[in-house]
Design a protein around this nucleic acid. Structure first.
Lengths: 340, 340
DNA sequence: TCGTCATGTGAGATCGATCTCACATCCGAA
DNA sequence: TTCGGATGTGAGATCGATCTCACATGACGA
């Protein structure tokens, strides 16, 4: 199939030197006569020589490839991060291999297993589970450089880049409370995803600090897909004495809530106030626009890539844990409640 | 860094056989004694042996990796396709390396150049340019299996999976005409992207077939980003005698149009009717929902992957060109024009 | 009893780049 | 004049898996 392939041997022959000398000339190390070097470089150019990265990798034990395992590449959040990581890696002549775990721990295990035998240089992971992580610990034990994003793993000492989920959620709920709401629904994720738990904690802490009793019946658990969120929303708002406001833990759920509320004929913010975690392009297209807790997405990918590249370059320092603050973007989906 | 690494040699030693025999036992070829085979397999299992794919690749000349070069991984259209391709490849133990061209021919050239030296097995491309494609032809000449998606390249004989851009655009404009519109604006792309040209042709052909004269002043050229589309929309609708309807050639432009029209205080469909090419999740969240020409996105990725895998398996048949039909999804963004 | 063939196994070559040696020069210093 | 160092270069080993070839057995028909 793939024929051709000018090897170093061809170049060496063309320049009438040994392979060793050709390698020295092309990679400029060791002693090489000026004239010889020129001859080699000229020959390489003429033949269109390109080093075989696989052969290099066999010797060095590493391909210039970094593996990225996001929860779901279709999620715009991860797509953006993937793009940023790739752009950053490319500057350092590395490629990005993307393998989506689809938020499935078993698949995540399989993927890492298969990426391991590829002699990949390092990993950027958004672990699906905060607890079932033996496979990741194992990977780390073998010495593979790892950077975690969006979520962390217990007992794993490595660089991580996450956002302040608890604080962001708290700020969102604080905002609803300050607008007079005290029956605030929560649409959350049933998975053991790290972020979902932190956001739940933020919700609870906010209510606690305002002396509002936690009401389990206001918390609806769902999968993180638009369809499930629609159902969960409808269930939540079909009860008597329904909430006056809703906080959703991610953008897919926010979209589901939007559709669910619309199908029930409930208008935002007149009937229900809404705040979502994670900004999304749709949020400014609705009427009213949706108030959200925004994450600094554009900073996550580049920083994660930077951390990993530093590790690949051999930097030996204690793991760095960066937690970006979130930002409440007030738009029009929250109304003030008057009296009661 | 990466230590460990149980090699075939270790397994062979543990099983007290030569490397050759160990290889035979593990890959089941040639003659191996039953008992010996068992001993090798047991040893491999016990040591946790994993074949080094890089070493295999050096011999075979090919890594189990397929390169995907989309226009932009952040575009949900490509993100979905990437996901589908990856899922399909994974069934055949292949990995997907994604390198976004960002709709830039030069970057596309660089990427292909760098992927080439990786001994990648095949490529799935969405070429940025329909004409500047010498680098792709070169790749094909070297024998690399290629499947084109979304866009084709002149003079390149290889499998392709695209949609009926001309027909879809024609149907959209036909629909506007059938609702009484005859001043129909077009928001198009200035790039030489294949799809943009075909969609333009569909627009022109529809008008032609209805005896409506082409009015260049109704065509606004812009880049394919939301921001540029906003500007272009505002320019288009700032003229006197503005169009009564607008057709946009991709989802980013449709979003831009939405924002642009809103900022001008023009309501849909009362003041302006709108049809966009490419469905997008936002389209059902707006009020009214947007009428679009939908592409069968879920079929493109799997089919492209299937084609490529067949080529990798050595299938030698004439290139296949699949062109999926589009589907007009009527929602609420088009109003009937009465009289004139 | 002697080939012939089926069956098993190992030594060594191979893929391409790189690195370690060993071996040449040639210089200036002792 | 001789020795040590700086400078250049090539032969061969190495990375890990696989494949070819040669060499063993043992069985079986002639």
């Amino acid at each position: 199939m793939t024929q051709k392939g000018i090897t170093l041997k061809d170049v060496a022959a063309a320049a009438k030197v040994s392979r060793a000398t050709a390698a020295r000339a092309l990679n400029s190390y060791g002693y090489v006569g000026d004239e010889t070097a020129l001859r080699v470089i000229e020959a390489a150019e003429r033949l269109g020589y390109r080093a075989n990265l696989v052969a290099q990798a066999l010797r060095s034990g590493q391909l210039p490839i970094v593996g990225f395992v996001p929860g779901d590449i279709q999620n715009p959040f991860f797509a953006r991060i993937a793009h940023d990581i790739e752009a950053e890696l490319r500057k350092h002549r590395h490629n990005l291999l993307i393998a989506s775990s689809e938020e499935n721990v078993e698949q995540e295990k399989d993927l890492l297993e298969s990426l391991r035998s590829l002699s990949i240089r390092g990993f950027i992971l958004a672990p699906t589970s905060a607890t079932d992580s033996e496979h990741i610990l194992q990977l780390a034990r073998e010495g593979a450089p790892i950077v975690l994003i969006d979520r962390v793993v217990q007992d794993l000492q490595c660089d991580s880049v996450v956002v302040d989920n608890e604080g962001g959620a708290r700020e969102a709920v604080d905002y609803l409370v300050s607008n007079g709401h005290d029956r605030i629904g929560l649409l959350r994720d049933d998975s053991r995803i790290f972020t979902a738990q932190e956001r739940l904690a933020g919700y609870q802490n906010s209510l606690l600090s305002h002396g509002i009793a936690l009401d389990e019946s206001l918390i609806s658990v769902s999968h993180s897909t638009v369809e499930h969120a629609v159902d969960a929303t409808i269930r939540l708002f079909s009860r008597r004495n329904r909430p006056t406001a809703l906080f959703t833990v991610d953008s897919l759920m926010t979209q589901g809530a939007l559709l669910g509320l619309r199908s029930m004929g409930l208008s935002i913010p007149h009937d229900v106030s809404l705040v979502g975690f994670d900004d999304f392009n749709l949020a400014t297209f609705t009427d009213p626009q949706i108030t959200v807790v925004a994450q600094p997405i554009s900073e996550i990918g580049p920083l994660a890539a930077k951390f990993l590249l530093e590790r690949l370059a051999g930097k030996k320092i204690a793991p760095r844990h960066v937690r970006f603050p979130t930002r409440l973007i007030v738009r029009g989906s929250v109304a003030q409640i008057h009296g009661r």
